[in-house]
């Protein structure tokens, strides 16, 4: 029996199908459901389809939840900037001087991912906590422990930065892999100082990788809930942590859904704003079809 061959359109659809199913099942449907739940209400751990705007009134009508949002937003901005400052020299060094060890060095950066997040956060606690390596060392020499790295916002910031720095390094490194370092030689020959060459050539031509890194660090930092639980004190509750509480102990799913929608909206807005700063032509982007 002769077989019917798939045409180009059929092949395209067949190849696009798994991705489309993934997006629909694991992204669109969950988002749709939390949007719907956010307009319902919860009573004694039961979701009641009673359409109303109360959850949004609660979120925007008091300073309580805005405090958590602002706390997490500030933390995510600080963590993204700290990661950026730390990651650029590391990625630059690996891309320019890593030679045949590049892959190995990048893999070494990913080594913490071989363990779970709780283990990594607990590990940080073992370094910065009240009886961690740093403070025990100081106390052994009769010095006072450093209080701002124990159960504070700063401790959370350090912990979250540690967790997400590899994302930033990888994004910048991948961008630098496609960067022609010869351009810097040309700039030097034409009299540009290294710093000016960096500002005018390296930085803008790798801005897209930097933006991807910033987004990859900002979004999970904004939603982070584990690190504040373990490293934060009583004043460090984050938006993600309080959001998690709604779906766990308090069982206030409707309010939690509204918080989820708000988090998604803020994250999307940040991505949009970051994307608008990308000049595709300047960054050497060649995709996008004909």
């Amino acid at each position: 029996m002769a077989r019917r061959r798939l045409g180009p359109e059929g092949r395209f659809l067949l190849m696009a199908l798994p991705g489309a199913i993934f997006v629909v099942v694991f992204l669109l449907l969950p988002i749709l459901s939390i949007i719907v739940f956010s307009f319902w209400r919860t009573e004694s751990y039961t979701l009641i389809p009673d359409w109303n705007l109360d959850n949004y009134a609660t979120l925007f009508g008091t300073t309580t939840y805005m405090t958590f949002l602002l706390r997490s937003f500030t933390m995510a901005v600080a963590v993204s900037l700290a990661s950026l400052v730390y990651a650029w020299p590391v990625a630059y060094f690996i891309a320019k001087h890593g030679d045949r060890y590049r892959l190995l060095l990048i893999l070494a950066l990913a080594a913490p991912f071989f363990t779970g997040i709780i283990l990594r956060v607990t590990g940080i606690q073992g370094v910065m906590g009240p009886v961690g390596v740093i403070n025990l060392g100081l106390m052994n020499y009769g010095l006072q422990p450093i209080e701002f790295i124990m159960y504070t916002q700063t401790a959370v910031g350090i912990g979250v930065t540690y967790l997400f720095i590899p994302f930033m390094v990888t994004a910048v490194y991948l961008s630098l892999l496609n960067f022609d370092f010869e351009l810097l030689e040309v700039a030097k020959i034409n009299g540009a100082k290294p710093w000016r060459a960096f500002i005018e050539i390296t930085w803008p031509l790798n801005w897209m990788g930097t933006v991807i890194g910033l987004v990859l660090v900002f979004i999970p930092s904004m939603a982070e809930s584990i690190t504040p639980r373990f490293l934060g004190g009583p004043n460090a509750a984050s938006f993600g942590q309080v959001l998690g509480l709604q779906f766990g102990e308090t069982g206030t799913w409707a309010l939690g859904s509204a918080m989820g929608v708000l988090l998604f909206a803020v994250s999307s807005l940040v991505i949009l704003l970051m994307w608008r700063t990308v000049n595709l032509q300047r960054s050497g982007f060649t995709g996008g079809g004909s």
């Binding site: 919860t42 009573e43 004694s44 751990y45 609660t58 008091t62 300073t63 309580t64 939840y65 405090t67 958590f68 009583p234 509750a237 309080v242 509480l245 709604q246 308090t250 069982g251 206030t252 309010l255």
Partner: peptide, 18 residues
């Protein structure tokens, strides 16, 4: 026991945390 109103207790706890 179960809080008399989990919703009300959630608000109180969030206000304390914030």
């Amino acid at each position: 026991d179960q809080p008399s109103s989990p919703e009300k207790w959630e608000r109180v706890w969030s206000e304390v945390e914030a």
